[in-house]
Structure formats: C-alpha cells, structure tokens
Design a protein around this nucleic acid. Structure first.
Lengths: 211, 211
DNA sequence: GTCTGTGAAAGTGTTCACAGCG
DNA sequence: CGCTGTGAACACTTTCACAGAC
C-alpha cells in the first residue's frame, strides 16, 4: 500500500485525530477541507498535516484541498478501522471499572470484551454486561473472547506479574496504567499512561513558572 | 539553581521516575545507585539518566554512583516536592469519579481538593469527602480551595467551555481527558490524555504487525 | 577498574519554502 | 491564485565515547 519508510508513532497517532475531524466535516456535509483547516482545529501546522498524510499517498487536490469523504475513507483504510479489536481489562478497581463504563471505547472498532481480577469478591460479578473472571483463567478468556489488547489497571506491585501472564497468553499489545516500566520482549508493544506523572509534570511547571 | 539551558518536558517527566526509583532504594536501605541501575529499572540508557540529572548539577560520585539519600533529596527539591498543589476535577462522570478515588494522586504534594459538575443531580453530593459543586461556582471554588490544577473529564462537546471558564478563574494548568484540542492562551499549560487514541494507536500496530 | 559528566555525533521529528498542479 | 506534496533546513533528543574523578 505505502512505501516502506518508517512512520513515527506520533504521526500515526495524529492520523486518528485527522480522521475524527474529517468525520465531523463529513457529518456536517462539508465537502472540502484544507491542511490548514485541519491544522487549525488540532493546533498543528498545515505542513505537518500534509506531511503526515503524504506518508500514505496523495489524497489532496492542488489548489482545492482534500475531499472530506475520500479522506475519511482513506484514513479508515490506512488505520484499519474496518477491523474489530477486543480488549481485556486487567484489574477491576476504580480505574478499571471506570474504563469499562467509559463509552468512548466501545466504538470505532474497539470493544472491551473481558475483565480479569484476582479478588475473589469481584470474580463472578458482572460489570457493563461483562463477567469478571479470575486471573488464573487469563489464557482461556483471551482465547475465547479473541482478545488482542490488554489494559493493565492493577497496582504497580502486581503489574509485571499480570503482564507476564498476559504475554504468556498471547497478548502483544498492552496499555499500561501502572506507574512502572514493564519488562517485555520486543515483540510486545506497551503504551504507558502514567497519570501521576502527568500531574507531577504539570506541577513542576507551576513551581517554576516564574523562572 | 541551574543554568538556563532549556530542559525538555520529557526529561522533567523522567526525573519523576528517577525519584520514584531512588525512593524505593532508600526505603530498602540501599545506599548507592548507578545510572545504569536506574536505567535498567526504567528501560532507559545509563547515558540518558546521567544527561537528565546533569541538567541540574552534579550529584554523582565518579567510580561509585549516586548516594540514594542525597539524590532523593536533590530530586525532591528540583521537582518542587516540598510544595502542595490542589486539584479540581471538572466533570464527575465515570472517569472523573474514578480519578477522585484513585489513591495514586493524593500523595506526593498533589491533592484533589474540589469537584465541579453541571448536573444538578450530582451537585451537593459528596465523593471521597469532597462536595461536588456547580460549574457556575468555578471561580469561587478555585479561589477558596487554592486550586491550581484542573483535570477535565467532561464530554468532548463541553470541554472547551469548561476550559474557558477555568482559565477565566485563574487556572493555568490543565490535564485534559477530552479527545479534542483545547484552545488556550499560551500562558496556560495543557497536557492531553487521549485514551481512545492510545488504544487506537495500539490497534494500528496490531493491524500492521506483519508489514 | 568503575562510574560520572559532557562535548560530539547520530538520529528523529518538525518546519520552511517552493515547484507544480488544478 | 490557492493549496498540495516534498526535499532541504532546522530543531530537538538520544546515544556514543571518552576524559577525568574516585
């Protein structure tokens, strides 16, 4: 489909935001959009938008911009939006259950399909129609539900153990909310969301805003 | 304190992880730690650890490494850990209430001190000992509770409105969970946490793992 | 010998600037 | 003209590699 030049994860991530914006334009029956229109909406430069899109082909029309419907279709194809990915939430605490309830995920080809925990008081309960199952069943559940992405929301001390178990069960994509660096083989892709760290970084800039 | 060379936000963010690790070492009564020890724990190179620390002075001892207690104290000072920052959660939905309950925040100089919402059914209720107040009271609440950081967990359609109100009330640090690019003056620092996008990016690599 | 601190080199990502198309 | 597509320039980060301290 596209040439083999390496594309940065940041660029890929931005493509998803282009898709969101262009979808809105389509829904509003707007036919054309320029790179600077998109950039303005997303606080990015027009050049960046064009570069990112340029990695995958030429979708635009010189002097006119991009056809919204075409661009939407192209992005959906590039980003694999035709496919469906199932997610398992590992650790059904505050954050885990909030994510299970968060409507933002169960759209767009992503679906929380399973939940695991080690707490006997939780195992067997249902949340959002999903049965919480024992961590011991990880392999089985992941297979049965055809899960390919895991969200780790267990305490830091349990995260590596959980990750090992998940990887052993075939998971190769992890969204890790535990504030530790997971040790995984390089065939496994981990994205970390470290909320304390985000807040701490903000606080640093507050503390130093004068200097 | 330190020279005026610009230090990247990524480097600052890593310093917080060094502080976490070195705190663990101190708690385990380990006296010395080398840059490669820290790097191994955090999946970073030894050189990176030294570079990051080097921005703020010389804490290490050639041939021996860093004294854990001294490094901990130095990092706490650099990172402003002696100060206390209050946080307001704006939008007490699933995610907002999960964050309020999340124990990871109410430590280390960060404290969720207030909550705002626009839903009359929620206003007046207490969560984790914090009264949910009306968004109309934003200015008052922020002043009274000496809040300096806002966490936005309202729906995307409300996020800009909420941000405007917060900024008007004096907030200059925002952690934004809404999947839109907030438009703010450049005196305001925004960090975005876009959970759908993180998952989508993972799914992209899944879809293309063969190529 | 071990490990820090740091310039220099390499690598990566972003912006510029403009040729060329509609 | 306006806007895309893209090499070249620039900026920023990370890694290398080694002199110097213990």
């Amino acid at each position: 489909m596209h040439n083999n030049k390496k594309i940065s994860p940041a660029a890929i991530s931005r493509l998803f935001t282009y898709l969101r914006e262009v979808t809105e334009f389509v829904n509003m029956n707007i036919r054309k959009v320029s790179s600077s229109d998109l950039g303005d909406r997303l606080n990015l430069s027009d050049a960046q938008v064009r570069k990112d899109l340029g990695h995958f082909g030429q979708f635009g029309v010189s002097g006119s911009g991009y056809n919204t419907k075409q661009l939407k279709a192209a992005l959906e194809k590039i980003l694999g939006k035709d496919k469906q990915w199932n997610i398992v939430v590992v650790g059904v605490g505050c954050l885990g259950s909030a994510l299970m309830s968060y409507s933002g995920f169960n759209r767009h080809g992503l679906k929380i399909a399973a939940a695991l925990d080690t707490d006997d008081n939780k195992i067997g309960n249902y949340l959002e129609g999903i049965k919480i199952q024992s961590m011991d069943q990880a392999g089985l559940v992941i297979k049965q539900k055809a899960v390919s992405i895991a969200i780790i929301t267990v305490p830091a001390s349990q995260a590596q153990i959980a990750a090992d178990k998940l990887i052993e069960s075939g998971i190769i994509c992890i969204l890790n909310f535990a504030p530790i660096a997971l040790n995984v083989p390089n065939t496994v892709m981990v994205k970390n969301v470290d909320l304390s760290r985000e807040l701490e970084t903000l606080s640093y800039f507050l503390a130093n805003k004068g200097s």
